[in-house]
Design a binder for these strands. Structure first.
Lengths: 293, 293
DNA sequence: TCAAATCATTCGTTAAAAACGAAGCATCAC
DNA sequence: GTGATGCTTCGTTTTTAACGAATGATTTGA
C-alpha cells in the first residue's frame, strides 16, 4: 500500500462531487477554496488517477470518480447511521418482530419460523434479506431481533451473540424429469453434469465441493446464486441439477429427487444479540423453536 | 450535529479493538501509545459514550463499542475495496455473465433472463442478490454486468447508466384456498384482510398503498419481505393474501388468483453501466431481451 | 512478597497537516 | 472588452497529530 487512504480527503471529494464544484462545496463546508483544491489533488495523487476531468472551468466526474463517489456515499452513510444508532441506543419496544435472513437459508425454514411466531402471538413480522455482516450489524444495533442463518455465525468467537441450532437437514440432489436416469448409480451418475449451485460464500457450497472431490465427481457449474428459491426455479426448468435440503418443500412433480448426499448436512441457526431478549416473541422462538423434518 | 465524526479516530479505534489493546495497536501502526490513547478519548467524547470499559489495565468493548466496531469494519472494508477497484480498473474479460438482482424482482423474470442468456451462448451465470445501492456500486466497479430491477433506477439522473424496460406486468392478488370467496366483489372484499407485502422500499408497495387508499380498502400487514418467493410461500400457507405480477409462475393448485388490480403494474428494468458493453452476452441481452407475458 | 514488566494515561514539546488570504489565470456572460 | 466566476498556486498562520519522558496502576514471576 502506497499510503493510507485519507478519509477526510474522501469526505471533501464527496462534497465537491455532490455540490457540483469546489466553490459551492467550500461555501457549504465553510472553508476556503484553496483548501479543497489542495486536498482533492492529494486524494487524486493517492488513488493514482484523476477523479475529475478539468474541462475548462468545470469539474466533471471521470469514471473512476463515479466509482469513488459511489463508495464515498456508502461509507459516509454508514458513518452517519453509526452515530444515529449510538445516539438513540434506546431499546424501545418494537411493535413487531423483525427477522433477518440470509438469502441462502431455505425459504421453507423461514416459513416455519414465521408461522411459529404467529402462533405464539398474532403479530406483524418483517423479514429483512441481506448479507451476513450487514445483518449482524443490524442485530447489534437492535434494528432486528433475530437472524436466521445457515452458517454457525462468523462472529462465533464474540461473546454477546448467542446462536442456537434449530435444524440439521440432510441434502439431496434434485433435477427435472429429463434427469430421471441419474437415479441409477447415484452419485457417480452426477459426473460431468451441469449444476445450479449456491455461491461459494455459503458453507453448503464448500461441503458440496468437498463431497464431490471425495467421490471423484466432476461437476459443471452453470449458474450460481444465493437465493434458494431461484435455484429451485432454475432446476425446475432443466438448467441443471441442484442440491436442496429436505425442508425445501420440493414439489415432486416438477423436480425429481435423485438421491441423498451422504454426510452432507445443512445446519440452520437462530441468532440473537443477547441472552435476554426484549422482544417476547423472539425470546420464545429462541427458547423453544426447533425444526425436525 | 455536535461535530463531524473523525474517521481517522475511528480507524485507530478499529485497530485498538481488533488488536486487543492500545499497546499492540501502537506497535502495529508504528505510532506511540499516547497518541492512540488521546485519539480514542476524543472519539469517545465525540460519540458521547465510552467505547471501552476500562477494567483494570484491560480494555473491554462496551455494547456501544461493539456496534461501533461493526460499522468501522464495514466502512474501512469499503475503503479498501474502493482502492482495489480503482487500482485494477482493467475491464478484464469475465469468464461468465454476472447478474445483480434485487430481491424484490420476481424470480420468474430472472429465470427468463438466465435462460435467454444460456440460449445466446452456453455460459456460466452468477446471480448476486442485494440492495439497490450495493448493486449499483458493483455495476460501476465492473464487478457485475447487468442489474435486474423493478425500480426505474434511483440514479436515473446520472448519465453513464443505461436502463431499458423489459416488461410491464399486471399485478393480481392471490390467496390460499380458504380465501376463495373473496373473488366475489373484488377488490372490495379485500377490506380488513391480512396481507403479505413487499417492503416499503419497493415501488410496488407504494403503488399498492396508493391503490388501496384510492379504493377505500384497509389492509392488515401481517408480514413483509423483499423476497417474492418467500411472499409466495407465506401466501400458500394461508398467512395472508399477497400481490404478484403475472409472471411469477403461480401454481393454480396452491394459490388462487382473486383478481387483478387495475392500473397497478410492476415494471422490470435491465440496467447496464455503459452503452457499450464488454460482455457480449450482456450486450445482446440488453439489446434484444424483452418479456411479454 | 517484592521487584520487574506491562499497559494505559498525562504532560509538555515538536512535527505535520489543514486552513487561510492574497494573488494568478483561465473561461464565460454580457 | 470588461466584470464575474471558478480553479489553482504560493507563502503564512493555526490547528492537529505525533513524539518522548514520566506517572500510576496491575499483573507476572522470581
Amino acid at each position: 500500500m502506497t499510503q493510507w487512504l485519507n478519509y477526510h480527503h474522501l469526505f471533501y471529494f464527496q462534497a465537491i462531487a455532490t455540490e457540483g464544484g469546489i466553490a459551492r462545496a467550500a461555501e457549504k463546508l465553510r472553508i476556503g477554496q484553496p483548501t479543497l483544491s489542495s486536498q482533492l489533488k492529494q486524494l487524486e495523487a493517492m488513488v493514482g488517477k484523476p477523479l475529475f476531468e478539468r474541462r475548462n472551468r468545470k469539474l466533471l466526474l471521470t469514471e473512476a470518480g463515479r466509482a469513488t463517489l459511489d463508495y464515498a456515499n456508502e461509507i459516509f452513510r454508514l458513518g452517519d447511521e453509526m452515530l444515529e444508532v449510538l445516539k438513540d441506543q434506546t431499546p424501545e419496544g418494537q411493535p413487531h418482530l423483525q427477522i433477518g435472513a440470509l438469502d441462502s437459508v431455505p425459504k421453507g425454514v423461514i416459513l416455519s419460523i414465521v408461522m411459529a411466531a404467529y402462533k405464539i402471538s398474532p403479530c406483524a413480522v418483517s423479514i429483512l434479506e441481506g448479507k451476513g455482516d450487514e445483518l449482524f450489524r443490524e442485530l447489534r444495533a437492535h434494528k432486528i431481533d433475530l437472524i436466521v442463518s445457515n452458517y454457525p455465525s462468523q462472529a462465533l468467537e464474540e461473546a454477546q451473540v448467542f446462536s442456537k441450532s434449530i435444524a440439521k437437514l440432510p441434502v439431496s440432489v434434485y433435477g427435472s424429469k429429463k434427469y430421471v436416469d441419474l437415479k441409477r448409480s447415484f452419485p457417480k451418475s452426477l459426473n460431468g453434469k451441469p449444476f445450479v449451485f449456491p455461491t461459494s460464500h455459503s458453507k453448503l457450497r464448500h461441503d458440496l465441493n468437498h463431497y464431490f472431490k471425495l467421490h471423484g465427481i466432476q461437476t459443471v457449474p452453470i449458474a450460481e446464486t444465493q437465493d434458494t428459491s431461484l435455484q429451485k426455479l432454475l432446476a425446475e426448468h432443466g438448467v441443471g441439477l441442484a442440491p436442496f435440503s429436505e425442508v425445501e418443500g420440493v414439489k415432486e412433480q416438477s423436480l425429481i429427487r435423485l438421491g441423498q448426499l451422504e454426510d452432507v448436512f445443512e445446519e440452520i441457526w437462530l441468532i440473537s444479540a443477547h441472552r435476554k431478549l426484549e422482544n417476547q416473541i423472539a425470546a420464545k422462538l429462541m427458547k423453544s423453536f426447533s425444526l425436525r423434518c
